[in-house]
């Protein structure tokens, strides 16, 4: 069965530091260009189909904002 990948980014927790964008090997994530209520440009998912579930973004996120879920 194909994997169903869901990347959830909590907009209010994300501080827009860009670490996840830098460490993603497949450039799945990108800047949204929109501010959250704390005045940070949060990250959003750009190319979900490229994700290989390495969980690098989850591991490096200082604010626990990213969650990668895989449903089979």
């Amino acid at each position: 069965m194909p994997q169903k990948i869901h990347i959830e980014i909590d907009r209010e927790l994300c501080t827009g530091c860009g670490i996840c964008i830098r460490f993603c090997p497949k450039d799945v994530l990108g800047e949204s260009g929109t501010l959250n209520q704390y005045g940070n440009f949060y990250t959003e998912v750009k190319k979900l189909e490229e994700c290989i579930v390495c969980r690098q973004c989850e591991l490096y996120c200082p604010d626990f904002a990213i969650s990668v879920e895989v449903k089979e």
């Binding site: 530091c17 940070n40 591991l59 996120c61 200082p62 604010d63």
Partner: peptide, 16 residues
């Protein structure tokens, strides 16, 4: 949450 750490601070990474 959200933590008081500055955006990009390494302390949150250590906590992770």
């Amino acid at each position: 949450q959200p933590t008081a750490f500055c955006p990009g601070c390494g302390d949150g990474m250590v906590l992770n």
